[in-house]
């Protein structure tokens, strides 16, 4: 506005540019030291880095953290993890790990696949994987747990379909194939029993416990007596609503982990996703050098131990041995290909 103030701004700019240049020069010198660190220890240490979207205290990222802890304990891996929820930061997180000589970098979610695909060619000595995704490179191979989880929840859907009195179930999810598609599997299982209907509610925010709870209450008021949530922490709200509703005619199926403790009187069974088991094989391959790039490792119920079921002993009167046998039978048919779970349109 005034010439003096313009001059002042000019000076500010000059100072900032100088500061940036000084910083840049200091920075440009730094990588000169890095290659030595890069080349030498690659053979020495087995290092695993994890990039995850949410705090490791929640169910989804907690599973990945448990996975790298197992790699530390059983494979002697040096582990580190970083939470990156901001898409502009994905690539940097991957290249930071890779440039520090990490052997394996795991991105915990399909959303990381673009970044892994872009970064991996620059770091041929590092292996990359993401949990979900379909892109690959020579040293990047994602794992896809969705097909098997759709099958596992199909079996849960068959069981829930037998239990339901109102013949209505509701699922709660977020817009993400890793959360949504497994519930489509549940739908097909539940609706395989004639007359059953399943409705799906998509929540906007995986942190909004309150919205999850309200959604569950609306579904129950609409007649659903089986609820299943795969919606991160908003799913806790669903289970809380089921736990608080007072009468024992509404039940829930747990996902991702064993969720029995969140509604001890109402969770029929949980279908945990054993991510540590699935990622362990990847880590072993990375350690002994047999890692296969250019491929997507798809998991199905044929992969032992990845899709276990945990039945709630408090509800043994409903989830009877016959009921559990029905689940086992369904899984056997899925394994044999007698039943197939369809991808929804």
């Amino acid at each position: 506005m005034l010439t003096t103030s313009k001059r002042a701004w000019g000076l500010v700019m000059l100072l900032m540019v100088v500061a940036l240049l000084v910083g840049a020069c200091a920075g440009v010198n730094a990588p000169a030291a890095a290659p030595a660190e890069n080349g030498a220890p690659a053979a020495a240490a087995f290092k695993v880095g994890l990039v995850h979207p949410s705090p490791v205290t929640d169910a989804w990222s907690g599973q990945a953290y448990a996975a790298i802890e197992r790699m530390r304990d059983e494979l002697g891996a040096e582990i580190a993890n970083v939470e990156v929820g901001d898409p502009a930061g994905y690539e940097k997180a991957f290249s930071d790990f890779a440039s520090q000589g990490y052997t394996l970098v795991i991105g915990h979610g399909f959303q990381y696949q673009d970044a892994a695909a872009k970064v991996s060619p620059d770091f041929p000595d590092t292996y990359f994987t993401t949990v979900g995704g379909d892109k690959t490179t020579a040293n990047f191979a994602p794992i896809d747990l969705v097909p098997g989880y759709m099958q596992a929840l199909y079996a849960m859907g068959v069981m829930a379909g037998e239990v339901s009195q109102t013949k209505q179930a509701a699922g709660f999810t977020l817009e993400n194939p890793a959360t949504k598609l497994p519930l489509e599997g549940f739908r097909q299982g539940f609706e395989s029993i004639p007359g059953n209907t399943f409705s799906m509610i998509v929540l906007r925010d995986g942190n909004d416990v309150g919205a999850g709870k309200e959604a569950a209450l609306q579904a129950m008021a609409g007649g659903a007596d089986i609820l299943i949530a795969n919606a991160n922490l908003a799913g806790d709200g669903v289970l809380q609503a089921v736990a608080e509703q007072g009468d024992d005619t509404v039940f829930a199926i747990g996902t991702i982990g064993d969720q029995t403790s969140k509604a001890p009187q109402n969770i029929l069974a949980s279908a945990p996703l054993n991510i540590p088991q699935a990622l362990f094989a990847v880590a072993q391959a990375a350690k002994d050098g047999s890692f296969q790039g250019n491929s997507v490792r798809q998991f199905t119920v044929n992969d032992a131990g990845v899709y276990p079921f945990v039945y709630n002993p408090a509800l043994a009167g409903i989830v009877t041995p016959e009921m559990q046998a029905l689940v086992d039978e369904t899984i056997a048919k899925l394994k044999a290909g007698e039943i197939t779970v369809e991808m929804p349109q």
Binding site: V209, G210, L233, Q240
Partner: peptide, 17 residues
């Protein structure tokens, strides 16, 4: 209300706008 009446836990960013 959100953390102790509605839910029974704190979740980061649970106020959600």
């Amino acid at each position: 209300y959100l953390s102790v009446a509605y839910a029974n836990q704190f979740v980061e960013n649970m106020v959600a706008g």
